[in-house]
């Protein structure tokens, strides 16, 4: 697999949300609007790239038996960096993402890529893999967030295109499940074609 494929596979063919079904909790929980989805996606991308990089750098020094706890510590450190930075510079986004920022630690995508890819590959391809997967995740969250925002409050990225709310249920919890279900069905169809 060449470098370009390491990067692009995350978008459609191996999209972490639509195809691999990883990281469902933040996907459903933070995609109430396109902006929130994008913010969460980019925060996860940062953690994913940095942890992939560090894991692939230290993979030769970590004994096999303690590798999972070590990976968790590496990931948790970067999550804490994101958490504190966001609290300082983007307080409103931090407020609306709330609990899901610390929960990036237990996002299966991050640990999954560290274990499945970064621990076996070089630094450069690990960074690209993290970037591709992270942006694929961000893409999925933004798409889901935008769809819910359009259906629910008739706006995209905060810009209203019609007055008032459409179907409020799509902003609320049930809408997240329903919209994601249909999006997965559509992406499956596209991937097969």
């Amino acid at each position: 697999m060449n470098q370009m494929q390491n990067f692009t596979k995350g978008f459609l063919k191996e999209n972490p949300v639509f195809v691999l079904l990883l990281g469902m909790c933040p996907t459903l929980g933070t995609s109430t609007s396109a902006i929130n989805g994008l913010g969460m996606g980019l925060a996860t991308t940062f953690v994913l790239v940095m942890s992939n990089m560090v894991v692939s750098l230290v993979k030769d020094f970590i004994p096999d038996k303690v590798r999972i706890p070590s990976y968790i510590v590496i990931i948790a450190s970067f999550v804490t960096i994101v958490e504190l930075t966001m609290q300082a510079y983007l307080p409103s986004l931090f407020e609306s993402l709330g609990l899901f920022i610390p929960l990036i630690v237990v996002n299966c995508i991050v640990l999954g890529r560290a274990e499945a890819f970064a621990s076996k590959n070089g630094v450069w391809s690990s960074i690209l893999d993290g970037l591709g997967m992270g942006l694929g995740f961000a893409f999925a969250l933004t798409l889901l967030g935008a769809s819910r925002e359009i259906l629910g409050s008739s706006s995209v990225f905060g810009f209203d295109f019609a007055k008032g709310d459409l179907m409020l249920v799509f902003i609320l919890a049930p809408g997240a499940f329903i919209v994601l279900g249909y999006l997965i069905a559509i992406i499956n169809k596209l991937n097969k074609a």
């Binding site: 499940f177 329903i178 279900g181 249909y182 997965i184 069905a185």
Partner: peptide, 11 residues
């Protein structure tokens, strides 16, 4: 598979 499960969860 998953899509119908998610829609069910939504309901």
């Amino acid at each position: 598979g998953v899509p119908i499960a998610l829609v069910t969860a939504g309901i």
